[in-house]
Write a protein that binds this DNA or RNA. Structure first.
Lengths: 215, 215
DNA sequence: TTGATAAGCTACGGGAACGTTTCTAATGGG
DNA sequence: CCCATTAGAAACGTTCCCGTAGCTTATCAA
């Protein structure tokens, strides 16, 4: 614990090199997310990030002014971007695809934990809530099933009157609650069950098959 | 700020008295919840609780050994207990009542914030997750719509095959997500919309009236 | 090759919370 | 009324992080 230039901290290559610019930034973002995932946002410190990234506090303060700034920047990078569904004709399939995209994002070991910590902090810090939705969610368009349902409504395949605020949130809500309860991410069967047992009935496309998977 | 016996800290009666036993415990629990609501669990400290409760650290360590112990104890006290629905015959009304109970619990200024912080911490601390569910949720039976749906299924008024894990979670999931997104608790119309637009369709009791409230 | 720039290292004083110890004094039961 | 019990006050050394400063050295472009 005395000679911190030896690659002993855990990850770096046996660094005689000195990283700069984008490379360093990348390492810092990665470290920031790992710190947040392990400790939770309130315990993330500049010193901790610097330690984990194998850099110096000074280098962090040169670019950012708080741990929070770093974490938000890092989060922006890994937030999933939803590819616009091509004018497809498979509502069920597209809903499953949208939830799967969200699920796969959550399954990145850090993503779910970071999100959970951020959202919790945001509950009591309106400024952070604002930044999170403005700089990450809205900036990235991560609205998942809402986008899909809207698309099909626009093409007359779903009754637009059914797309209430409640209905467009069903999928994400169940995914989130599953994550909270189970501390892990649901499998494909559960996602299919969400679509078949909750979303489709709500938009009047009744349960095609009673589908007793995920029981 | 020098004479801390004057009722200057904010709440206590101009205390010459000295609280003990249950009375003191009560004050500590209240302080712990307020601290958690304001700062989030990770920033709750023994010193902070003591300060807010107007007592001494020594008195806290006499009974508890960590801020977390205090918060969990406090949470147990305020977790809502669901009164068993009498053999009623109003599924929709009972579902609304169950969600309203949960909503009203969340609306206690501290409850929602404390929960959110606890759940977030629990995501990365299996021991805490375990304690939270064991000592609070399960111990208190707070399962809300699940209980109602089960009741009606037992009496043959709901198809038991429809009560999948997904379906019994719809209501709570939507309530939680609303809280996260809006940073406040939904009104009665929104709860009715959840029941009419999401839960009832999922159990095959189609939307009685398209009910375009909460639109 | 040289020189400006950016990265890394060390150290600083300040603050907050830790968990414990020692002591004083209020409280309520006997 | 007295005294065992329990609350409260104060101080302790320790640890961690803060934000900044002064310096050395690696890196890249001109």
């Amino acid at each position: 614990m005395s000679d911190r230039n030896r690659s002993e901290g855990g990850e770096g290559p046996p660094r005689a090199r000195r990283r700069r610019g984008a490379e360093l930034e990348e390492a810092v973002y990665t470290a920031a997310l790992e710190e947040t995932a392990e400790l939770g946002l309130p315990r993330v410190t500049m010193e901790g990030i610097a330690r984990r990234a194998g850099t110096a506090k000074t280098s962090l303060y040169r670019r950012w002014s708080s741990p929070e700034d770093i974490v938000l920047g890092a989060l922006y990078r890994i937030h999933p971007v939803e590819q616009p569904s091509p004018g497809a004709d498979d509502l069920r399939g597209d809903l499953i695809a949208a939830l799967t995209l969200m699920r796969d994002a959550m399954v990145q070991p850090v993503y779910g934990l970071v999100m959970s910590s951020l959202l919790s902090e945001a509950q009591r810090r309106p400024d952070l809530h604002e930044r999170l939705y403005a700089e990450v969610f809205d900036a990235r368009g991560g609205r998942f099933t809402r986008t899909v349902l809207q698309h099909y409504a626009d093409h007359g395949r779903v009754d637009p009157a059914r797309l209430t605020p409640v209905v467009v949130d069903i999928g994400e809500a169940l995914l989130i609650k599953y994550g909270i309860d189970a501390m892990e991410v649901p499998d494909d069967d559960y996602i299919a069950a969400i679509v078949d047992q909750a979303i489709l009935p709500a938009i009047g496309h009744g349960p095609q098959q009673p589908a007793d998977s995920a029981d």
